[in-house]
Design a protein around this nucleic acid. Structure first.
Lengths: 344, 344
DNA sequence: CGTTTCCATGGAAACGATTCCATACAACAC
DNA sequence: GTGTTGTATGGAATCGTTTCCATGGAAACG
């Protein structure tokens, strides 16, 4: 691996490294002659500037960190794609980290990102403001929270207003005659887990539905806990007639076990999931969901991060959520219809 | 953003930067006294070594690049997760890039990765050995191909033997009485697109099925092209009675349009997809698939890359594929059964 | 023609770490 | 007491850039 440096380029072009550097960085104080000779030398040698050295000198790394819980979650995969593409368009590369919903992995990754001197960090945070999150603040590292927040920290964020979507979902189920809705909650260590749970609690109170605490199962946003939740809820003396899962993976787990148990979704039991995933509409019956726009979230997050990097102080953004009714939430009285035509 | 350097640590600890550096890198030539004082200074100042500077001096960046076509493809999301976790365990962070199945984006990203001096690159390549792929070779940058290869390049790879799975799928469909199988192919610019197509061609010849060229539609591994493929194939004078999609996303597109057209999968038309995705088993009817292990592929790729970085020359690995029969491939004569119990 | 302005240029100092090399000192053997 | 190890230490060079500063020559001005 022969290293070709700017020295080689300068030598071949017959100019000093200073001039070569100026040409390479587009500094106008260069003669057309030098420009041409340097350009020729660059292609001749297939020279690639060393980004490390450049970063060291200029204290910009042209990279951002993206820390999510798990890219295998379609929601975060979409987010990762959008963020990566938007960042690339702005000249940044993206370092991807999976925290796997574990605080110590999050801290470990944040430390790595700090060490790498990324120019900014987009993170779907976990836990409270302790650990490495605090370092981000004391070091004034440009940071944007996405999807989730951390209480008491003054960091701009892009989140979803779960309240509206969840209220619509509960009202929809209540209107269909359901009185006992089982809720498969996200972890309370995440703001989304807490917010959605709170929204659900308020919604069933307003709708006058059963507030039996046994109807709530606390999962971890992974598929397996969705299955476990269904298992637990169906064993109640008075099992729920409808289910609301706080994210798509737990909904997948729920569907899997319901299939296995022979319970017909949309007929024997209603199911609504938070997060819309393209193929949820392909299920039979098509899954009713609370939808919010991941792409928008990702784009806005990058926008905001760029602003913070530029010294700005963008306002936090809250995106709406809305219920999309498909077949899986059909009423206990009215049987399941065919696949919905609504494909969104 | 006050920058704390090793100088500050050394000053506070009352030692030279050389000694501080030695302590930090675990060099044994240090006294217990210095060790203690440096350690105290590090925590006191919350010092984080600058990875850029370290990389510049040591010519190792402790980072690898992972370039896939699209993380939104569950196959690549799984791969990204596995690779990222395996790399992290080995002390590397992962730079993620999406080439979006476009050569120029692949080249652009490869250039960036070269400039960043990543220690190695794992890539699901696209196209031939032209463009920036060639630079990888001339610069002897440790590289491993994953899922796909590029003809004529001496780069170790981890791929899947599509042949077996596809043969099984075709035989399975032939045994059920299908004679006209529609094939939704991947792009011929990818080795998997070519290999799977070739395997399909051989398999239908061996099985004595129709080799009508109109039964092949060339897609691009994206959902939309799956829909387009189904659309085209169903308009044939003699439409196929079974479909084989060369990846999961095109299968999703196919399912979407089949739903819309009211064709019952597993009854009116059979469908098998290449790539197994967790929730394919949750569809109704559950999707028959040609399965191969992404996790294994990712782990092996990282293993091999670490070997190459260490100067080794690992042998390429070919992983098996196998048909998993569920309900979507039921015969035209025997109607669809319920959801398969096989959940893998 | 002399003086000022402008601009391209090269030398050299940074950036923050690692590491070679020389030194100083203690410990040991003779 | 001298000589030989050995060990902890600090100074300084180095990695590949960018950028400040000084310089030299051409152009423009009186």
């Amino acid at each position: 691996m022969v290293a070709i440096t700017i020295k080689d380029v300068a030598a071949l072009a017959g100019v000093s490294v200073a001039t070569a550097s100026r040409v390479l960085s587009g500094n106008p104080a260069t003669s057309p002659d030098s420009r041409a000779r340097v350009a020729a030398a660059v292609t001749e040698l297939d020279y690639r500037p060393n980004a490390q050295a450049r970063a060291l000198r200029s204290t910009r790394s042209d990279s951002i960190g993206l820390l999510v819980s798990d890219v295998r979650n379609p929601f975060f995969a979409d987010l990762a794609h959008t963020v990566e593409q938007a960042a690339l368009a702005a000249g940044y590369v993206t370092l991807l980290g999976n925290a796997n919903e574990r605080k110590e992995q999050q801290d470990r990754y944040l430390n790595t990102l700090i060490s790498r001197r990324v120019d900014g960090i987009i993170v779907a945070p976990l836990g409270d403001g302790s650990g490495s999150i605090r370092s981000l603040i004391t070091r004034e590292i440009p940071t944007v929270f996405v999807d989730r927040t951390v209480d008491g920290l003054d960091i701009p964020s892009v989140t979803t207003d779960s309240e509206a979507g969840i209220r619509q979902a509960v009202e929809h189920l209540a209107a269909a005659g359901h009185t006992r809705i089982g809720y498969i909650s996200g972890p309370q260590a995440t703001s989304t887990g807490r917010d959605r749970f709170a929204a659900f609690t308020r919604a069933i109170a307003v709708a006058g539905l059963s507030q039996d605490p046994d109807l709530v199962y606390f999962g971890d946003y992974q598929a397996a806990s969705g299955s476990a939740g269904v298992h637990a809820l169906l064993q109640l003396r008075e099992p729920p007639t409808a289910l609301l899962a706080a994210d798509s993976l737990m909904a997948v787990g729920a569907i899997a076990i319901l299939h296995k148990l022979g319970r017909r979704i949309g007929a024997d039991i209603a199911l609504i999931a938070f997060d819309d995933i393209e193929w949820f509409a392909l299920l039979n019956p098509a899954l009713s969901v609370i939808s919010h726009s991941v792409e928008e979230m990702g784009r806005i997050a990058v926008d905001m991060l760029l602003q913070v990097i530029d010294g700005g102080q963008p306002e936090s953004v809250v995106l709406p959520s809305e219920l999309i009714v498909r077949a899986s939430s059909s009423t206990p009285t009215s049987p399941a219809s065919g696949p919905s035509l609504r494909t969104n």
